[in-house]
Simulated scan of single mutants.
Amino acid sequence: MIPDFDLSGDISSQRIVVAMSGGVDSSVVACLAAKTGAQVIGVTLQLYDHGEAVARSGSCCAGQDIYDAKMVCDRLGIPHYVLDYESRFREGVIDKFADEYAMGRTPIPCSQCNQGVKFVDLLAFSKELGADCLATGHYVRRVIGEDGKAQLWKGRDPRRDQSYFLYGTTQEQLDFLRFPLGDLPKDEVRKLAEEAGLEVANKPDSQDICFVPDGDYASLVKKLRPETAAPGKIVTLDGTVLGDHPGVVHYTIGQRRGLEIGGQAEPLYVVKIDPEAREVVVGPKRALAIASCTVEGLNWLAEDQRQVETKVRSLAPPVPATLTDVGVRFDAPQFGVAPGQSAVYYEGDRLLGGGTIVATQAAELEDA
């Protein structure tokens, strides 16, 4: 079955721009778009300078990916554009990623990328091409509500759902976007790629943080923000010094391993990071319990309501909570909530909105 791209009128006169990363998901989207009979254009963003892009492996929109996207477009007989967004990606995503770590926060660069180069710059370019929509390979669903407005829903396959990273999508953007893979499991997508003879059918998925393909984010941050590698002290909540650390960049809220402060009466976790004082504050697990958090940059896609289900990490289950004037209050204390992460609100499968956590308020727990 060919997914409905929700285009009205003569389909042959409609134009679909497909955001192509060079992976199997976006390649299948291009294939499905071409089968509709509409005019299809593939667009790939070059997010690194040419020399670095060619050398990268396991990254999104790197040298091999650009070649793979072009190869798919050639097979489908559709035009392919490559846009040099290296400077915009560096300033809007990579630099902000480093800045967040320098402030002791835990950033989510995928959300920044979607809210910037993908759903702002690329969407604008698509309109310049006269497109009727921009289609991507995200595993989310676009559902038309009873009021006729587009809504954003979780991908039907919970293992692949990417809605958490798309909370910043505005209503205007959602009206123009299409997500034809939202109802499909990954194995079905690979099957479609094999049936279409696409060379990328068995290509591995890219890393979550595409510009840190080896997972060593600390090295990248230290290179961009050397102050994060300054040594400091590991202290308890009351200020007692327990040891030294090699730089705040190596720590995140909730971390237990790698502290190297043995001999304690109970396990200790990172509960706060103070870059200015160069201190990593540790405490027992109960000190990680959060009652509420302050949220900024709220994007809202639904009707007014206070009771929501909230996700504070991409792999965490949504939990009952109440929206406040400044953020969200959890029905029960939550653990591992950190500034820099996203608070994303749902009602069942429907994404209501979300924003960035800038501060947390501790819960009072005797035992945890």
Results as ranks from 00 to 15, higher is better:
P333H: 00
S219C: 05
L184N: 10
G77P: 05
G263A: 09
S314M: 04
H50Q: 11
D238I: 00
G232D: 07
S8Y: 02
G116H: 12
N299W: 01
T322S: 12
E91R: 13
V249S: 10
V29E: 08
F176M: 02
V280K: 09
A55S: 14
G215K: 08
L47C: 10
A368L: 12
T36G: 01
T310C: 15
P318V: 06
G22T: 06
T310F: 09
A230K: 15
R90M: 05
G263S: 06
P109T: 01
Y139D: 07
P320L: 00
K223E: 14
A38G: 13
D325S: 15
V200P: 04
A38E: 10
P158V: 02
Q39L: 13
A363S: 12
Q307A: 13
D95M: 13
L122D: 09
W300F: 05
V29G: 11
V212Q: 04
E128T: 09
G168H: 01
P185M: 06
R286S: 14
V319G: 04
D214W: 07
V328L: 06
A230V: 14
G340W: 03
R156D: 14
V212L: 02
A265K: 15
R286W: 02
R178K: 08
V221N: 08
D10F: 03
D121P: 04
F5E: 02
D349V: 03
D99P: 01
V221Y: 09
G336E: 03
Q112Y: 13
V140M: 03
I253D: 01
A332E: 14
I209W: 15
Q39D: 04
I253F: 08
